[in-house]
C-alpha cells in the first residue's frame, strides 16, 4: 500500500488547482492587430493608382462582419449563450438609422452609436425575458425572434412593409463614394475588437466566463448571473445594431429580406465557431475566412442555394472536428502563432 502524508496530499491538490488556473499564454502580441489596422486605414490610397472599388467593398464588408461577430462573441463566446437571432438587432439598428436618415438627412455614421444604443436597449429587454432559459431553449427562442421580427417588419407600413424604404445615395465621385462607410466600418471593427479585449479581461468578463463554465456554480460564488447575462446580451446587441445602422445607407435601401436573413444571422455564429468563440482574434479570423469563401463560391458557382449548402457543410465540419475553432484548437495544442494571440 502506498505511503502518503496528509500534508503531501494537500500540497498536491494545490498544485493541481494552480495548474488548471495557470494556462494563460503570455505570448500575446499587440503589434499585429495594430499594424493590420494601420494598413486598413491606408488601403484607400490605392484608389489613386487605379480602380480598387471591389477590394474596398470586400474589406468594408469584412469589417462589418467583424463588428457583428465580435459583438455576438460577447454573448455567445464569453457567456456561452448561443443566439441564432442576433440579426434582429442588425435590423433594428438599420431601420432606426435608415428611417432617421431618410426623414431628417442625418448621416447614419453619426447615428450609428445611437442605433447601437437602441439595439442594446431592445436587447436588454429581450434578454430579461429569454435569458431565463438556457441551452437549446435559448437557441430556439432566438430563432423564433427572427421569425417574429420578420413578420412584424413586413407588415409595418411606416417602414415600407416588405418593400422597405429607398435611401438617397451620397454625391461623392464613384471612386470615393464608399470611403465614408469604409472608414466607419473599419473604425467600428477596431473598436469592437478592442472592446472585446477589455471586456474579456475585466471583472465583468470574468463573471461572464464563469457563467459559461458553470452557471450554477457562478451564481453560488456570488456572481449576479442575471445582470451579467442581460448586460452581455445588450452589449452584443449594441455592436450588431451599430453595424446595421451604416449598412442601410451604404446599400441605399432598407428591406426585411435584406436585413432579416437567417443566413446572415448564421454567418455571425459560424464566423465565431470557425475562428474560435470566446477568443478575441477568432471572430476576426473566422470572418475573413467565411467572407473570402463566400466570395469565391458565389463568384465561381453563382447560386445562393449552393452557398447555403456550403455554409452548412463548413459549419458541420467545424463543429464535429474543431469545436474550439481555429484559434481555440491551436491554443489548446500550444501551436497558436503569436500574431493570432490577441487575448
Amino acid at each position: 500500500m502506498a505511503e502518503f502524508g496528509a500534508s503531501e496530499v494537500v500540497a498536491a491538490r494545490r498544485a493541481r488547482d494552480s495548474g488548471l488556473a495557470g494556462t494563460v499564454d503570455k505570448t500575446r502580441s499587440a503589434w499585429f492587430p495594430l499594424t493590420l489596422l494601420a494598413a486598413l486605414l491606408l488601403l484607400p490610397a490605392l484608389q489613386f493608382a487605379g480602380n480598387y472599388n471591389y477590394l474596398i467593398h470586400l474589406t468594408l464588408f469584412t469589417a462589418m462582419y467583424v463588428v457583428m461577430a465580435s459583438g455576438w462573441n460577447i454573448l455567445g463566446g464569453f457567456t456561452g449563450y448561443i443566439s441564432l437571432g442576433h440579426i434582429v438587432f442588425f435590423a433594428i439598428g438599420g431601420y432606426f438609422a435608415g428611417m432617421v436618415f431618410a426623414r431628417m438627412g442625418i448621416s447614419t455614421i453619426v447615428l450609428a452609436p445611437f442605433a447601437g444604443l437602441l439595439a442594446g436597449l431592445v436587447g436588454y429587454m429581450i434578454g430579461l425575458i429569454t435569458l431565463r432559459v438556457r441551452g437549446p431553449s435559448f437557441i430556439i427562442s432566438s430563432l423564433a425572434l427572427v421569425m417574429i421580427a420578420r413578420i412584424l417588419f413586413e407588415n409595418w407600413h411606416f417602414v415600407g412593409g416588405a418593400a422597405g424604404v429607398a435611401l438617397p445615395a451620397n454625391d461623392l465621385p464613384a471612386e470615393w463614394a464608399k470611403l465614408p462607410y469604409y472608414y466607419a466600418f473599419v473604425a467600428m471593427a477596431a473598436f469592437a475588437t478592442w472592446a472585446s479585449y477589455r471586456i474579456k479581461h475585466s471583472k465583468f468578463g470574468l463573471g461572464l466566463r464563469a457563467i459559461s463554465k458553470d452557471e450554477i456554480k457562478a451564481e453560488s460564488a456570488g456572481i449576479d448571473t442575471r445582470f451579467h447575462k442581460v448586460l452581455a446580451f445588450a452589449i452584443s446587441a449594441f455592436f450588431v445594431g451599430m453595424a446595421g445602422a451604416v449598412w442601410g445607407e451604404y446599400l441605399t435601401y432598407i428591406r426585411p429580406n435584406i436585413f432579416l436573413v437567417v443566413l446572415m444571422s448564421v454567418n455571425m455564429v459560424l464566423m465565431c465557431i470557425l475562428g474560435g468563440k470566446g477568443t478575441i482574434a477568432g471572430p476576426a479570423l473566422g470572418t475573413v475566412l467565411i467572407v473570402a469563401f463566400n466570395e469565391i463560391f458565389v463568384a465561381t458557382l453563382g447560386a445562393s442555394e449552393i452557398n447555403v449548402l456550403a455554409t452548412g457543410i463548413i459549419m458541420m465540419v467545424s463543429l464535429m472536428f474543431y469545436p474550439l475553432g481555429i484559434v481555440g484548437t491551436l491554443a489548446r495544442r500550444g501551436k497558436l502563432p503569436r500574431i493570432l494571440n490577441w487575448d
Binding site: 500500500m1 502518503f4 496530499v9 498536491a12 491538490r13
Partner: peptide
C-alpha cells in the same frame, strides 16, 4: 481516493 489516485486500501 484523491486526485484520481488510490491512496489507501485497508
Amino acid at each position: 481516493l484523491d486526485l484520481g489516485k488510490t491512496l489507501l486500501e485497508a
